[in-house]
Nucleic acid binder design. Sequence first.
DNA 1: TTACGTGCAAACGTTTTGCACAAAC
DNA 2: GTTTGTGCAAAACGTTTGCACGTAA
Lengths: 149, 149
Amino acid sequence: MTERNLTDTSSVLRSHGLRPSKARVLILALVTRRREHLTTQEIHRLLENGGHRLGAATVYQNLNRIAQKGLLRRFIGPDGLVRFEANLLPHHHLLCVECGRIVDAGVNETSLRHLSPVDLLTAKPATGWEFSGAQVELKGVCPSCRKKR
Amino acid sequence: MTERNLTDTSSVLRSHGLRPSKARVLILALVTRRREHLTTQEIHRLLENGGHRLGAATVYQNLNRIAQKGLLRRFIGPDGLVRFEANLLPHHHLLCVECGRIVDAGVNETSLRHLSPVDLLTAKPATGWEFSGAQVELKGVCPSCRKKR
DNA sequence: TTACGTGCAAACGTTTTGCACAAAC
DNA sequence: GTTTGTGCAAAACGTTTGCACGTAA
């Protein structure tokens, strides 16, 4: 992790109304640097392995705070664990049912975003994956909640 | 809950290699009857409210066992809680960000299944929903796991 | 009567909370 | 000097496990 990265990270935090404390800079820089979908514990462990001692509560609190400010995306993984990623662009997740790996689609292959779930299942040749299922989760406001406004 | 339902439920259980114990029949009949995406706790509570005293472990164990046999679908909800549904057909979930309700799509509107996520966002007129985001989760085997076989 | 299911309590892993201390502004 | 963040411990929560007892075939 370069000095440059840490300085940039500090500015990003500051510009979103968060004090660039040591813990926050380390957490945000780590998740941004790695192109993974990390659990809070993984993040905590990676930082400790890097020689940075942090309380678990600090990591939990800061991840949630940072995600709340929109600097990281928080989502529930297929295993039910809370995960964070730095990729804020809309994209799909490819989940390997054998190793549990989660990979982003739609980053270098934006075309995927315009295929239907049914078509995506046959997209194997393009990706090297062998797909067995697809599910769309749509977020929005339901009819009855719309009425209440 | 009619006698008929319970008899049917027993046969279904038996035909899938599960003894139709009182707990299993009640659990499966309940989830099947309600068109919802219930958590284990909700199921437990609903049964108790109906006058059926069951241990929590029994409910957890049996839901997992029944889902394992393919009679119910188990999935992780957007809140991270384990949920069960009786709708075994491939379908999408519409999640209301205000009330948390999860509704199935693609049951009476199979056409939705052939739309891309991008197109789905504009499907409001058909459904009464106001969509703000869509994400596809694809399940399959990743390239490196495919190599290992 | 032998295998299987139940219920209780205890254990487990993840996440949140309360509070004294420390750092940032 | 006041506000905000940290770290520890404890609590809270959903879920799983171990085991003695009960029920089904």
